[in-house]
């Protein structure tokens, strides 16, 4: 029974939350990027991209740190407007 409960209520277990929160915060800790520095980097990246790619709205660019299985990624998502 305990096993079944564990399966269906997995998301509610506080240990899973603890693990997920830790893994996320450690990605940031390990690259030593504070939210301030992330914002600054995003602003600079947006400026550079806007300079070379006209059909980008700089406000839509997202820069995030993402946890991978073996390596972590610094991800920049840059949506392009579809104009011909």
């Amino acid at each position: 029974m305990g096993f079944l409960n564990g399966l269906f209520r997995k998301r509610e277990r506080s240990s899973d939350l603890a693990r997920e929160r830790l893994l996320t915060v450690l990605v940031h800790d390990r690259v030593k990027l504070t939210p301030d520095v992330m914002e600054q980097m995003k602003a600079e990246l947006s400026a550079v991209i806007a300079k070379y790619v006209p059909n980008v709205d700089p406000d839509t660019i997202e820069v995030t740190l993402a946890r991978g299985d073996s390596i972590d990624h610094l991800k920049a998502e840059v949506p392009l407007r579809r104009n011909r």
Partner: peptide, 16 residues
């Protein structure tokens, strides 16, 4: 608490 999933497991900590 570990068995109940209310404390991170040994494996969780080692993996992290």
């Amino acid at each position: 608490m570990m068995k109940a999933g209310e404390m991170m497991s040994i494996e969780d900590v080692l993996q992290i």
